[in-house]
Nucleic acid binder design. Structure first.
Lengths: 112, 112
DNA sequence: TTCTTTCATCGTATTTCTACGATAGACGCT
DNA sequence: AGCGTCTATCGTAGAAATACGATGAAAGAA
């Protein structure tokens, strides 16, 4: 009954995001978020993390057609963009989506 | 009264897009679209083209902090991603948004 | 035709991205 | 302590992105 650690992935807060949807800052923000998901492997990672919302870890490597170090790099890109979060769970690391960032991306794209 | 040529920018068709929202193809598609807007200057270009929906031309260069050749390159990226369209109007070129592609991007991001 | 304007393309330099294998650190287990 | 597992980081190599000035092609104006 312990398929997924479920250590991380806290329940999403659903408060309102008051940051502007356009302007120079929003442009930079949108560009950065878009760039982060601007790679097929990273799209897949996001999808996997959403699907297994109990957020898996290095099982990602098994699901993706690239080497472990490459997956780690992509995870780093997503993390630096704020789209995911990693939490150490013993010897492994549990990644999960940062729902606020994803929502922000949707808002910014929707604002176009 | 002829601020903008208004030569291109046909009225947007609003038929339904039946392509899947996930799967390998959708992943590639989303990654490509996201990558295209994954640069601040290109975000600005998209915004300008949306605002002046009568689609302007090289006035873009005046609005952006980069050289003419660089703007041209960014326009090429957006065009190759299918997000914009250019139509020759005498000596100048009139660019405008491809609404279907933008909608597709929204759908794909929304599908995450 | 010649000049001017508008834009794309070329050539180039610099930076960033992508991917891999190898290595090292952290942790649990024996 | 020693071992195996998991993951990040390093080092490297090749590809792609970004930016610029210079050049060229196309169209209208003189």
């Amino acid at each position: 009954m312990k398929e997924t650690p479920a250590v991380c992935c806290p329940p999403a807060r659903d408060d309102v995001d008051r940051r502007p949807v356009e302007g120079d800052e929003a442009d930079e923000e949108l560009a950065a978020l878009a760039k982060a998901i601007g790679h097929p492997v990273r799209v897949k990672i996001v999808r996997i993390l959403l699907r297994t919302n109990g957020c898996i870890c290095g099982d990602l490597v098994g699901e993706l057609p690239v080497a472990q170090s490459t997956v780690s790099q992509h995870l780093k890109v997503l993390k630096e963009a704020g789209l995911i979060r990693g939490e150490v769970d013993g010897p492994r690391v549990c990644y999960c989506i940062e729902p606020r960032a994803l929502k922000r991306l949707r808002v910014l794209v929707g604002g176009l």
